[in-house]
Nucleic acid binder design. Structure first.
Lengths: 228, 228
DNA sequence: CGCTGCGTTGAGCTTCTTCAACGATCGTGG
DNA sequence: CCACGATCGTTGAAGAAGCTCAACGCAGCG
């Protein structure tokens, strides 16, 4: 079946025997979502977890007055909502397709049965959760210890390091979404980009950002320096 | 051996067979730390994880200019630094004993071997990480979407719910530590406690806080209402 | 008794958000 | 193909929230 091949391409399932891949293929279902469509909402019963096959999925929280904080933006190969499987209970955030996306859905109960019989799958899963925790810890640090310019600088450097340290970044999300990732609002982001431009840290044109002064950005990111 | 009994009392290891408890006892070591003593620092090689047996341990990040953000405060039975085991690499934060504490240390490699052979241990571990992720997601939401009074209100209600919904809370940490948990500074916390007092939300005397207006606090926590 | 750490208070200032307006871009339907 | 609306990004002015710095009281402890 075609699904098995797809499943085997998912990093989470790397190193699994053909036997287990086949079993996974038996419990999985493929789902399509259009741009802007909700996959699940916070508080809904967590019936399973997902893996993005194509497109882009946003995981986010919403406050009473409508502000959103993005927790992740996920692309192909990345799982989400695993927490619902292992912590039981409900989805802890909202999930929405940012573009036309296809996802695989793994129902909770069947998946747990599988994991009980396959330690190497559980080690992969543990690694994913552990990495996510690490990422969240950094977000928490960032949100509470750094000002917005520092968070932006850190984010830009992180992006760059994930793309072979290229100096020219293409934003993969809208600037308003970037603002929400950084825990701020589009207006503030816009002003800070402008300042960073005029002070020679970066050269930003629409959705492309060129890093001009990495050292300066690093100092911004650790709070050693400020934008004036 | 005495250790086996202690290990069996740890929630993380609930439901394990005697056989595995014995194996755990073979790899574990017990360590003592004095008040204020560092257990490990961010960036050190992650050689294993810990479980608090007695005392209190603080997990925190520090910014360049010395501000700290507390990620957890852990008491007896709670594990920490599991991330280092499964994500490999280094400790992602600092750990320090807030009081005289005894902890059990589980070396990474031996523990991974154990988990490879024991699905129920791995499921327990997955549940722990998943719950932690959920908690972090809430912290992130809180830090970026709520103002300090809202965070404080949410925290007080959470504390209360964890203690049979009692209306009289005893702070288990210094106020300056509470401030750091909430992502703010002692001065701001002090001012907000004062306002909450004068407006009848709470009655706070030194380290004891009585909740007077739960409904009002809830509205503060979700941003429906503000302190003036 | 003096010291040290913790908590509180006040004044001033920085940063960020809010609110409002406007320009640009893009996709769609006429 | 153009026009229109919607969305997105930008800019300005004003205000709110929280931080910094400094000072001081108080308690616990050597």
């Amino acid at each position: 079946m075609e699904l098995t091949k797809e499943i085997s391409s998912i990093p989470l399932f790397r190193g699994l025997s053909q036997e287990y891949l086949d079993e996974l293929a038996l419990i999985v279902t493929s789902q399509e979502f259009k741009r802007g469509q909700t996959i699940f909402s916070e508080g809904e019963e967590g019936v399973g977890f997902y893996v993005v096959m194509s497109g882009k999925v946003k995981i986010y929280k919403i406050s009473f007055d409508g502000k959103e904080q993005i927790l992740h933006i996920l692309g192909p190969g990345e799982p989400f909502a695993e927490v619902a499987v292992f912590a039981g209970v409900n989805y802890p955030a909202h999930a929405l397709a940012l573009e036309k996306s296809r996802v695989l859905f793994f129902p909770k109960n069947s998946f747990i049965e599988l994991i009980e019989r396959n330690p190497s799958l559980s080690l992969n899963m543990l690694a994913v959760l552990a990495m996510r925790l690490r990422k969240f810890a950094n977000m928490i640090e960032s949100l509470s210890l750094k000002e917005v310019p520092g968070r932006l600088a850190a984010h830009l450097l992180l992006m760059s390091s994930q793309q072979n340290n290229t100096n020219v970044l293409q934003l993969s999300v809208a600037k308003s979404q970037l603002a929400s990732m950084l825990g701020t609002i589009p207006e503030t982001l816009s002003r800070i980009l402008k300042k960073m431009n005029s002070q020679g840290y970066i050269n930003s044109q629409s959705s492309s950002i060129q890093l001009l002064d990495r050292k300066g950005l690093e100092e911004l990111a650790i709070g050693e320096r400020r934008i004036t």
